[in-house]
Design a protein around this nucleic acid. Sequence first.
DNA 1: CATGAATGAGGGTTCATTCAT
DNA 2: AATGAATGAACCCTCATTCAT
Lengths: 211, 211, 211, 211
Amino acid sequence: MTTPPRRLHPRKTPVQARAVETRDRILDAAARVFGRHGYAAGTTNRIAEAAGLSVGSLYQYFPNKDAILVELVRRHVREGTAAVEAALAAAIRDDPGDVEALLAAVVDAAIATHAGDPALHQVLFEESPRPPELLAELHELEAAAVDRATALLATDPRVQVADPALAARLVVTTVESLVHRTIATRAADPVDVPTFRRELLTLLTRYLGLA
Amino acid sequence: MTTPPRRLHPRKTPVQARAVETRDRILDAAARVFGRHGYAAGTTNRIAEAAGLSVGSLYQYFPNKDAILVELVRRHVREGTAAVEAALAAAIRDDPGDVEALLAAVVDAAIATHAGDPALHQVLFEESPRPPELLAELHELEAAAVDRATALLATDPRVQVADPALAARLVVTTVESLVHRTIATRAADPVDVPTFRRELLTLLTRYLGLA
Amino acid sequence: MTTPPRRLHPRKTPVQARAVETRDRILDAAARVFGRHGYAAGTTNRIAEAAGLSVGSLYQYFPNKDAILVELVRRHVREGTAAVEAALAAAIRDDPGDVEALLAAVVDAAIATHAGDPALHQVLFEESPRPPELLAELHELEAAAVDRATALLATDPRVQVADPALAARLVVTTVESLVHRTIATRAADPVDVPTFRRELLTLLTRYLGLA
Amino acid sequence: MTTPPRRLHPRKTPVQARAVETRDRILDAAARVFGRHGYAAGTTNRIAEAAGLSVGSLYQYFPNKDAILVELVRRHVREGTAAVEAALAAAIRDDPGDVEALLAAVVDAAIATHAGDPALHQVLFEESPRPPELLAELHELEAAAVDRATALLATDPRVQVADPALAARLVVTTVESLVHRTIATRAADPVDVPTFRRELLTLLTRYLGLA
DNA sequence: CATGAATGAGGGTTCATTCAT
DNA sequence: AATGAATGAACCCTCATTCAT
């Protein structure tokens, strides 16, 4: 067993139910505080207060401020991935060959994930410092998503693209980017979400030669 | 007690040539410093030093740190817009009816703008705090771009979309988002730019019913 | 408002064997931790962990961190004194009138005491705060040592000093200081211990008119 | 010109008279604060206050707390060395061959140096963390002192020691240790300084075979 | 008695901003 | 105008100590 690279990992692997709960309370508080104040102004004292703890306690669960952020990102991504996977599984169960339905499921899951707390999303994925370690993780996750998409596109013979892996990559990136941009970024003149959803699906299906 | 109204406008509208020059020197320095160190670590002292003057002098040109950032964003956007406009003008001069060529011109201009200083771009548009005032400006600019695109799409009868304004919006957003994402964000496994360019154009033309 | 009288005495006079054992375990742990990390970085939590118990338990045996240090110093000094006394007793048994042999015995005991854990010694007698109470104790012990030395020097008619008590004091101080300095302090160019020992004895015997 | 190893060096090499003065004010304040409160409790805020500055200013002259200490040690040692050198020079001018006089001069200078601020001395040379860099410097200075002493001892044919270099080392160490111990350490039953001085010289001269 | 989570005062340090020169 | 020393609020984090379980 090797020592974890320290520094960005939770200080204690919570085994007791109480500890797990406290950790989550801290993360929830951090989500609120970061969402409201941004990363820089989201001070550890504020987070502790929001969590109903003292700073000292907070630092018993996380070695430093960045570690909280990293864990928040991880949790967020884990939940997002799970949501997409679940939606995908359901769609495949309904009709395995219907790529349009799969796309719709993925887009809906992505929208749902972003809609939860747009401000937090913004902080987590744009404003905050992302240590290389975390970036690597995120890139790996994205690569996995692209692989998954490549495989799924291959199941529908109607899909007409020169390079399926490249197309998959563009699809994943487009969904992520546009949904993020549209939902997370507070626009002055926000689009109607259902309209945006429909148009994004149109874009994707036309790109893939499905329409 | 209300927060004092933050001044984000340059302290002096420079009329003398030397003042303009100094202002630009500060902005250039800020671009370098922010690009290299990020927003938080890009201290005003460092910027002043990089600009070859004292902090005191810097504060004679900008009321606070954020104002420098805002001005930098404005300058960047202005230059980007100009580049796109120029590219567009050239393409129209070549063949006014060729929407594919227009799209290509716009995409190329966008890529060029982002490629200039990816790190700075990242800082400017992701990491840094953007005051509402600036956000409003950016949204306005984007709205103008969408209007422009709507008009251009209307010139080509082949374009087949249900709602031209909506399609224009998606096109603008897609180009911006994907180019930013692909060029500015340092990915682990970066795509080849020409390949990306070609595929993005494929996506756009298919979406618009041009292919 | 006066400072509350710090308690430096152990919280419980241990009567039960197990308690004594625990106390010693704590002191051993503290010796290791202080020796390795220094006083400031030798936290009570670290000591407790090294002793294999909880901080809470540690505080049942010692009222505060300083009390641990004080007890450690006491123990150390007690052991050192005992070692010197034993060496002295043995030397006297061999040849009661041989002051050179007595000096050698004392020097050897001093060296042995310091050599045990130089780092700890350093922490105990240099780096750490010594409350006045403890200082008084140490001074008393030193006074006793000087008295003892005075008596011993009187047994040898060859000893030629103007003021025996003063000479005794200088001898005690010299042995302590030089041995500490030479052994405990990690010098860049450390002397060979046997060589140092021989030279120190030369210094002492010449000073006392024995050589 | 290589970049200095940072971290322990003064932040700005003071060129302006005002800056030099401020630096010295900080060092004087630090001497007072460390002498009174010890190293750990000698906070940078307290030092700044004692110097009549803000913490921020203090940090414009020293990169961190340790650097202040290091500079204080350097200053102290520099002054001590200078005092010894001056005393030595005067004694040599008087009578170059009189080793007793040289020893007396050195001992007097050492006593004077320590007597200045015993508490500070204690903090500087015992309680405080000494970074390796500083230790190396101190060791080098000591080596130089030993060399100097070796040379001086060689000038008097009456000096009878087996190994002059070793004897020189012991002489230097003894003077330093005993003077430090006797003057800097607040003893319960302090020796009379002139008496101590006389006896220390007796010890040294007898050791060297001069008496 | 033991535990270890919780506390929170306090420490070192940074940096946007001001203002005397 | 320009300078850069000075400011001080605010930040992140530690650790001796307590107390509910």
